[in-house]
Nucleic acid binder design. Sequence first.
DNA 1: GGCGATTATATCGCCGCGATACATCGATGG
DNA 2: CCATCGATGTATCGCGGCGATATAATCGCC
Lengths: 178, 178
Amino acid sequence: MFEFALLGLLHEAPMHGYELRKRLHDLLGAFRAFSYGSLYPTLRRLQRAGLIVEEGPEESALSWGRRARKVYKLTPEGKERFADLLANAGPQTWDDDSFGVHLAFFSRTPADVRMRILEGRRRCVEERREGLRERLTRTSEQIDRYTRELHRQGLESTEREVRWLNELIAHEQSEQDE
Amino acid sequence: MFEFALLGLLHEAPMHGYELRKRLHDLLGAFRAFSYGSLYPTLRRLQRAGLIVEEGPEESALSWGRRARKVYKLTPEGKERFADLLANAGPQTWDDDSFGVHLAFFSRTPADVRMRILEGRRRCVEERREGLRERLTRTSEQIDRYTRELHRQGLESTEREVRWLNELIAHEQSEQDE
DNA sequence: GGCGATTATATCGCCGCGATACATCGATGG
DNA sequence: CCATCGATGTATCGCGGCGATATAATCGCC
């Protein structure tokens, strides 16, 4: 899904690694914090796959003073690949790791796919909630205070997330009516 | 930290892999969901390190009918190692992944170490909160609705976690006074 | 004039996940 | 009555991502 994020960012403008990582941090902040140990290998992978290419040495007199930077830009295949990933939003799209990334690119996502992702995510979080509830009632009397507190907090924040998703979905629907 | 969890669980009773995994699920549920792909390699690692040993074939006439199970139990070195991990609670103890695990074993953790972990965790979450706040104000006007919503939700749940930690800490302190 | 922070690329080993394979037992039901 | 499904159980493989680390040049500040 790192792949998805990088392709999406490069859609905005050609960028070099360091910049991509910063933009990603601003974009995701709360959720995932991709490290350089993932960034550079992924960039090379994308390049080998022909989805991005290095731009020319870029001898722009203005921007000189910096050290050697590798600026990447999307190839047509890269754009196609990103569009594919957007359209084929499957079950792995709504797990904890990917959902935030996909949400961050919602403005570029078709409305019907947005809806599918939001509802898939909601279902997924609801399932977790049910699991937590069941576990909490089943084990409630036989576990120590700290573990119970851990579960209580987990359940509560899961419930909050469901409510949040409901709001997002409602908002989508009201926009659809316009 | 998987190591820590397994050693802690085996402190309760000797167990085989499948059972360890189920107990772990009940214990952590909300947070981490260790998979078999981690479980068995880790068990072997612990065994090689001499921290756990396989119990004898266990020909107990009663419990037969099941397939070959490998029941592990702690060695003295294993117990020592667990005590070490409990005592030397360092900075990596309070990151997202480890904190839940450590909290689940708080009943076996000395009061002063409990306090150190809780305060370390609070500091860590507070720092994240500050980062989110800064990012939210800095980028507020130039990002799309969805990303902003993502950050808002992230910030809010982080704030909730800080409040929760404050309650836990307050409770610790009031218990200390008794 | 020197020192730390920032900009920048890159690698390495490790950890843990998801998928998968395989085998056995109990229960459910056609 | 037996078939099939779900739970019990052990195990491996590849891969994606992280944290630590190396390297280096430039910028701003005192």
